[in-house]
Every structure is written in C-alpha cells, then in structure tokens.
Amino acid sequence: MKQLKLIISNEYATDLRSKSFWIATFVFPLIAVAFGIFIGFMSEDSKVLSTAAAPTAPSDDSDITGLQAAGMLCGLLLTLFLMINGAQIFNKVKAEKTNRIVEIMATMVPGRTMLLAKVVSVGLLGFTQIALWIALGGSIGLAVCFWLGVDIPLGNIFSLDALSMLLWGLVYFFGGYIFYGAMFAACGALSGKNNENQEYMTIITFVLLGAFYTGMFAVDHGSSQLAMWCSLIPFTSPTVGCIRAVAGTQPWWQSAISVLLLYGAAFATIAFAGKMYTSALLMRGKKLSPRDLIAFMKTR
C-alpha cells in the first residue's frame, strides 16, 4: 500500500508539473470556446451554416426526464474521460516498457501495483483537470449570475435525488474507469517501440463505443431485457448500469450485482494486466499472438 501511494504520488506530481497538462487544461478549452463563438458568429451571417444548425424536427421536451438526462450525461462523461485518459494510460505504460524502467520497477513492486498506480494517477490527473474546469466555469457562471442578478437554485443542486444520482454516477464511473483503464494498460504492456499490437487498442475503443451506444438505448428503454443484461456485464455496465441506476429504472438488487461484478472484473483485469506487464518483458521485439497471452497467464 505504501508503494502504491508512493508511485501514485510520484506519477501524479510528475504529470501535474508537465506543460502538456496545463496546455490541455486551459488552452484547449479556450480554443474550443473560441471556435464555438466563431461558428456562432458565422452562422448568423451564413445561410448554409444556419440551415445546418437548425433543428430538423421540433423538439419535444417531454421525451426524457431530468434523471435520464443526468444518467446519459454520466455515460457520456465516462466515455469521453476514458477516450482521453485511456490513451494516456496506454502511452505511459508503453513508455515505461520501452524505457526498460519496468525491469527495475518489477524488482520492487508487483506488476498489478504498478498498473493500478498508473490507472489511478492518470484518473486523479483527469479529475484534477475536471475540478479545475468546474472551478473556473463555476466562478465565471457565478460571476455572470451575480452580474445579471439571477437566483441560483441551491435547493435543487443539494437535493437527496441529486446526491443519490451523484453517488451512483461516481460508483459506476470509478469501477468503469478502473476496468477499462486496466485494459488500456494491458494494451500498453503488449505494445512496443514499433507500436505493435495497436489493434487491441482499437478493439477496446470499439467496445467502449458499443457500451456508450447501448447506454443511449437504455435511456429510453431502461426496463428492457437488453438494458437489464447489459447493466450486469462489466463491459457495458459502466454506462448502461449507471444510466439505469441514475434514472431509477434499475432495482436495487440489480444495481448491487452490477456493481459487484464491475469491481470484481476491474480488479481481475488489473491482476491480468499486471501479469502481462511483467511477462511481456521477455517478449520484446516480437509481435505477441493470442497464444502468447495464454502463455503469460500460465507463466509463474
């Protein structure tokens, strides 16, 4: 545990000090906002843009409830978070392997601890980024509300529903992040200087997108058989289970099983990826086959 904390704090502090983190945190959102404003201005004067941006059908506000929208937002956030940070986990693990640091680390720390530390530190960094965005956006929002004299609905923000929604969101978010993060880490362990085995990364990305789209299906069909089974399977439960739990369409016992299965699978994946991490040391310069993966699991 001491080693895990030490690795996490070292990785986190190193990344936090890097320029790329601060550029990604402040420069990219500014560029995105500037781009949005630019498109907005252009659409006012452009027939093409205004036609493209116009809704094709009249909106129906009664389509989804606020809770469903919140569940959908959780699923979307997790998918985006994993897309961005999964690549970072992959790159960090790959770099450590190609730098041969892993051979030294493996004399001190078990593979699963190294991997878990990587996943957690990248996750913490992602949360730091989100916290900074919330702090910045919140401050600007508060300033604007204060300036315009708009009342802030604090009662809604701190209601029991909102807190329970937040709790479910976080439970699924962490479980899903560790589960998928471990898989991205395993891909990094299998890759090398020549970017071999990148196809595993593509497979995971597709699975993640599949989970997201199934989640979107579950927004409107939360009580369907498909949504029920997908909320139990760890590959899809981070989005589908989260959306159903937040929207209140999932019975408590299904939520319990879903969360247990998700966390069990997450830690099993960490153990599997950790084993692969140290075993892959021996297979440098060789493209790994599925048979090699089975051999890794058998290796003591």
Partner: peptide, 14 residues
C-alpha cells in the same frame, strides 16, 4: 537486493 539490468531504465523527465 540491488539490481542493475543490462539495459538501463530511468525516467527521462525526472
């Protein structure tokens, strides 16, 4: 134990 492998491994940016 102190182990120094043949191929060195250090964190470049540390």
């Amino acid at each position: 134990i102190g182990y120094m492998p043949e191929e060195r491994g250090l964190y470049d940016s540390m």
